[in-house]
């Protein structure tokens, strides 16, 4: 180990940095509690009126609902397609399948503004602009690589001999998939579904391009609120989002702990 003093300095620095990463978001909490009608820090008295407005406003509620529908559909679709594809690539595993894998990861790394342009360009002639189907399809293409990664990671630890054994015992391809492969890669599928949900729930750049009036997701409404920079309801929405993030994180942590325990025992 390197000079104790330097290590200590570095560790303190790292903690400061990590707190710097997390704490700024917390400012949304006091701002959301301001009794005033404009964005401000509360002085003295606190009020829940902006939360009340958030949960009674038709607009915000419909955005929560629409984002939920889109994120759940995206997650289901991306998880199904991504899992099937990951299993296929794992079974083929040749030079070509690795090429295909690299290609399928592209939507994750190509700048979102370019993806947004591409979807916008194609959704105009297809009539998918400003529709649920358009957003779900676009988000699915962006989210499927996540599922591909997490499921492939699970498959890497799966023993192919189990598949062979199942087939030798007379199980069909479909039975083997359902009863042998899927149960073993459940953690990867679960993580992929969660990541796909979050990606869609939080997606703004592509959404800005391909939605307008009839579909108005939560990030879209927050974006508007941030640009207008006056209404504290945005702060209340931010607090709700932070809470949801934390809940999702806890679920994920518990689930992955359970999985590591299962594999250990």
């Amino acid at each position: 180990m390197r000079g104790g003093l330097f290590s200590l300095f570095n560790r303190v620095g790292a903690w400061v940095l990590l707190l710097f990463l997390v704490t700024p978001a917390l400012i949304a909490i006091p701002v959301s509690l301001t009794p005033k009608r404009f964005l401000s820090m509360p002085q003295g008295e606190l009020s829940l009126r902006h939360f009340e407005k958030l949960f009674t406003s038709q607009e915000w509620l419909s955005s929560f609902f629409q984002s939920g529908v889109i994120a759940v559909s995206t997650s289901v679709l991306a998880t199904t397609l991504g899992t099937l594809c990951a299993i296929g690539l794992w079974r083929v595993s040749s030079k070509y399948s690795e090429l295909v894998r690299a290609f399928l990861l592209l939507p994750l790394i190509i700048p979102q503004i370019i993806s947004a342009m591409a979807f916008y360009r194609l959704w105009i002639p297809l009539g998918l602009l400003d529709s649920y189907a358009g957003l779900i399809l676009a988000h699915t293409i962006l989210a499927a690589p996540m599922v591909l990664i997490t499921v492939s990671a699970s498959l890497a630890t799966f023993d192919p001999k189990l598949e062979q054994a199942s087939k030798n015992l007379g199980a069909s391809n479909w039975t083997t998939m359902r009863r042998v492969i899927l149960p073993s890669i459940k953690p990867g599928v679960f993580a992929g579904a969660l990541f796909a949900f979050i990606l869609s729930w939080d997606e703004i750049v592509v959404t800005l391009f391909i939605s307008k009036f009839s579909v108005y997701t939560l990030p879209r409404r927050m974006w508007n609120g941030i640009r207008e920079n006056t209404d504290p309801t945005v702060a209340a929405a931010a607090v709700v989002l932070i809470a949801i993030t934390l809940i999702a994180f806890v679920i994920f942590a518990i689930q992955s702990r359970r999985n590591t325990k299962n594999t250990a025992s």
Binding site: V22, P24, A25, L26, I27, A28, I198, D202, I204, P219, M222, W223, I226, V234, A235, A238, L241, I242, T245, A248, F249
Partner: peptide, 10 residues
């Protein structure tokens, strides 16, 4: 995991 919009707002 915290939303990019939440962070930008902050």
């Amino acid at each position: 995991w915290i939303s990019i919009l939440v962070r930008t707002f902050s």
